[in-house]
C-alpha cells in the first residue's frame, strides 16, 4: 500500500465531517516561470486551498479558453514537460505531505511517456490524481488499469450534455471525485446558471458514491459560494491564471493576488 493513495479521499471525508466545502485552485505549472510553481502551491495551501490542480502545459490545449491557452504558451517558452511538472510536485512534497495534488492536462504527453511509466513516476513524485481532458472512459481501459495499479486517482469530466448511462460509465472509471463542468464551452467562458448546476449535480449524486466537484465559470467568492451549495468542491481556474497574468513581472505580487482571491473564496465557502 502506498501512503498517499487516499489523500484525496481523506481530504473530502475530513471536510464533509466539518460540513465544509473543498476549494480547488488550478494554475498552469511553469507559468510564467518554472521556479514560481512550488512557492505558488504552498501559498495556495496557506490561503485555504484543499487540493491543488496543477496544469500540465500542452501545445494544443483544445478545451481551454484564451486565458489558460496563454498560460500554457508562457510555460512552453521554458519547455516545461510532464516530467518537469512531476518534479515540481516532488519538491512540493518535501514540505507538504498532506495536500492532495492532481495533474490536469491532455493525453498526448502521458501517451508518449507510456501509461505505466507515467503512473509509477507520478506515484513516486507524490501525485494523487490525473485528469486528461481528452480521454473518455470508452478509450481509457489501459489508462485506468495503469493508474489504478499505482494508486493514482482518475478524474474525469462530466458535461451538461452527458447522458445518465455515460455518467455511470464515467463513475466506474473514476477515483477520487467526479468533476462536473458547469457550462458548455471552454475554460473561463460564459455565465453560470446556478439552478441548472444544482439540478444536474443532484442527478449525478443519484449515480455515484464519489464526491462531486464543480468547475468552469467560477469567477469570484460569490459564485464560488453559490456553486458550493450544490457541490462538495469548487474548482477555480481561469480567474486565478488571470491574476498570474496580471503580475507577470513579479512572482511575489502574483502570489499575493492569488492568495487574496483564494482567501476571499475560502471565507465565502466557510461562511
Amino acid at each position: 500500500m502506498i501512503d498517499h493513495v487516499s489523500r484525496i479521499q481523506a481530504r473530502f471525508e475530513l471536510r464533509a465531517k466539518e460540513g465544509r466545502k473543498l476549494l480547488i485552485p488550478y494554475f498552469t505549472a511553469g507559468d510564467p516561470k518554472p521556479e514560481n510553481a512550488v512557492p505558488m502551491m504552498h501559498a495556495m495551501v496557506e490561503a485555504g486551498a484543499d487540493l491543488i490542480e496543477l496544469g500540465v502545459p500542452f501545445s494544443d490545449p483544445m478545451a481551454e479558453g484564451p486565458v489558460i491557452q496563454r498560460a500554457m504558451e508562457r510555460a512552453l517558452e521554458y519547455n516545461v514537460s510532464l516530467r518537469d511538472v512531476m518534479a515540481m510536485v516532488a519538491k512540493f512534497r518535501q514540505k507538504d505531505s498532506e495536500t492532495p495534488v492532481i495533474l490536469m492536462g491532455y493525453l498526448n504527453p502521458v501517451e508518449v511517456m507510456g501509461y505505466t511509466e507515467f503512473a509509477q513516476a507520478a506515484s513516486k513524485a507524490g501525485v494523487d490524481g490525473l485528469l486528461t481532458v481528452d480521454i473518455p472512459p470508452e478509450e481509457a481501459t489501459d489508462y485506468v488499469a495503469a493508474l489504478k495499479a499505482e494508486g493514482i486517482d482518475r478524474i474525469f469530466l462530466i458535461a451538461p450534455t452527458t447522458s445518465e448511462d455515460r455518467i455511470k460509465a464515467i463513475n466506474d472509471a473514476s477515483g477520487g471525485f467526479l468533476y462536473y463542468v458547469s457550462l458548455k464551452g471552454v475554460t473561463g467562458a460564459g455565465h453560470l446558471d446556478v439552478k441548472a448546476v444544482q439540478d444536474r449535480v443532484s442527478t449525478i449524486r443519484t449515480l455515484t458514491e464519489l464526491p462531486v466537484g464543480v468547475g468552469f465559470g467560477i469567477k469570484d467568492a460569490e459564485s464560488a459560494a453559490s456553486i458550493a451549495s450544490a457541490a462538495d468542491a469548487v474548482i477555480v481556474g481561469s480567474v486565478i491564471v488571470k491574476r498570474i497574468e496580471e503580475n507577470l513581472d513579479s512572482a511575489d505580487n502574483a502570489i499575493k493576488a492569488v492568495s487574496e482571491l483564494l482567501s476571499d473564496m475560502r471565507q465565502a465557502l466557510d461562511a
Binding site: P136, L157, A159, T161
Partner: peptide, 8 residues
Amino acid sequence: FVAETLMG
C-alpha cells in the same frame, strides 16, 4: 479522444 462536452 475529445472533451466530455463533445461526446453528446
